[in-house]
C-alpha cells in the first residue's frame, strides 16, 4: 500500500466500500424488517412466558458475571489486564457517584447505581453484537413470514426499563424513609400541619390568623400532592426514556440495514454505542440524584 498516497488510499477504500454496498444491495438484499414493540414470546413452559428479551437479559447476566469473575478471580495489588480495565471503569463510576452523593452516601448507593449502569450499558452494547435480532425462527406462512429472533436487547422490552424504574423508585423511597423516619418523610407528601393548625385557630375564635394558616395549609397539601405525583411520574419518565431511546436505536439500525446494507450501517452502530452509554449514565445518574434528594434533610414545615 506504500505505493499509494494517502488521498488515493482513501479513494480506493471508498470505492471498495461503495462496491460492496452496491453488490450487497443488488445480490444480497436484506429482507424488509419487521419490528414489533412487544417482546416476542418464544416458549411458555408452565405458563411462564419466555421472551427473547429475557434471554437477552440472561446473556447480559452471564457475560457480566463472567467478566466480573474473571476480573476478580485473582485480585492483585498491582492490577493487570482485565482486572486493571474493570478497576479503572469501576473507579470512574465510584468517583462519579461520590462526586454527586458525597463520600459516605456514595459508598451506600454505589452498588445499586453501579448495577443499574452496568446492566443498561451491557444490555445496549450486547444487543449490537451479531446474532442479536438476526438468529431466530421464521413464523407465519406464505408471504407473511416474520423472523422471531432468539436474542433481543432487554432494553427494548418495556418490562425491563419498567423493572429498573420500579427498583429505582423503591430504593429512593426506602432510603428516604430510612434517613428521615416514617412520619418525617411522609410529611413531605401529606403536609397537613398548617391546615389543622388553622382549624385549631378558627375553633379558638382567632378567625383572621386562622384563615391565613388555613390558606397556607391548603397550599402545603397541594404541594405535597404534587410532590407525590412527581415521584410517581418519575417511574413513567424513567421507563419511557430508556425504552424509547433504545427501541428507536434498534429500529434505526434495522431501517439502515434495509436501506443501505453492508458497510454504510456501521456509523449507526457507533451512534448506538454512544447512546447506550449515555442512557446508562442518565438512568444511574438520575437515580443517584433522586436518592441524594431523598436523604437530604428537608426544611421543617
Amino acid at each position: 500500500m506504500a505505493r499509494f498516497s494517502r488521498r488515493r488510499r482513501i479513494g480506493i477504500i471508498a470505492f471498495i466500500s461503495f462496491g460492496l454496498i452496491a453488490v450487497g444491495a443488488v445480490f444480497f438484499p436484506i429482507s424488509m424488517p419487521h419490528f414489533q414493540l412487544a417482546a416476542e414470546v418464544l416458549w411458555s413452559p408452565l405458563g411462564i412466558p419466555i421472551t427473547n428479551t429475557m434471554i437477552g437479559a440472561w446473556l447480559t447476566i452471564l457475560v457480566m458475571g463472567g467478566i466480573a469473575y474473571a476480573a476478580t478471580r485473582k485480585m492483585r495489588l498491582v492490577p493487570h489486564g482485565l482486572q486493571n480495565v474493570m478497576e479503572a471503569a469501576l473507579e470512574m463510576l465510584l468517583n462519579f457517584v461520590e462526586s454527586i452523593a458525597g463520600k459516605e452516601n456514595g459508598r451506600k448507593f454505589f452498588p445499586l447505581v453501579a448495577t443499574i449502569f452496568i446492566f443498561v450499558i451491557a444490555n445496549a452494547w450486547l444487543a449490537l453484537f451479531p446474532g442479536f435480532m438476526s438468529i431466530g425462527l421464521w413464523h407465519g406462512n406464505g408471504e407473511e413470514q416474520v423472523l422471531v429472533p432468539f436474542f433481543r436487547g432487554a432494553n427494548t422490552d418495556v418490562n425491563f426499563p419498567l423493572a429498573l424504574a420500579l427498583i429505582s423508585f423503591v430504593f429512593v423511597e426506602y432510603w428516604g424513609f430510612r434517613s428521615h423516619g416514617f412520619i418525617s418523610y411522609m410529611s413531605k407528601f401529606v403536609n397537613v400541619r398548617q391546615y389543622f393548625g388553622g382549624m385549631g385557630q378558627m375553633l379558638r375564635g382567632r378567625v383572621r390568623s386562622g384563615m391565613g394558616m388555613l390558606f397556607s395549609g391548603i397550599i402545603d397539601i397541594f404541594v405535597g400532592f404534587i410532590e407525590m405525583v412527581s415521584e410517581m411520574v418519575r417511574i413513567m419518565s424513567f421507563t419511557f426514556r430508556l425504552f424509547g431511546n433504545m427501541t428507536a436505536g434498534e429500529i434505526l439500525i434495522f431501517s439502515m440495514m434495509f436501506l443501505i446494507p453492508w458497510v454504510a450501517a456501521i456509523p449507526f452502530y457507533g451512534l448506538e454505542l454512544f447512546i447506550g452509554f449515555v442512557q446508562a449514565l442518565i438512568f444511574c445518574g438520575l437515580t443517584l440524584v433522586f436518592l441524594v434528594m431523598a436523604v437530604a434533610p428537608h426544611e421543617e414545615h
Binding site: 414493540l37 412487544a38 421472551t51 428479551t53 447476566i61 476480573a71 452498588p111 422490552d157 418495556v158 423493572a163
Partner: peptide, 29 residues
C-alpha cells in the same frame, strides 16, 4: 398490550436485576 407490559416478564426482569446485583456485589464490588 401493544407495548408489551406483562407482569410475568416484569417480575422476571426484576429477578434478573436482583441476580445481577448479587453477582456483581459479590464478584465485583
Amino acid at each position: 398490550g401493544a407495548i408489551g407490559i406483562d407482569w410475568q416478564v416484569l417480575l422476571a426482569q426484576l429477578i434478573n436485576f436482583g441476580i445481577l446485583f448479587g453477582l456483581l456485589f459479590f464478584l465485583l464490588y
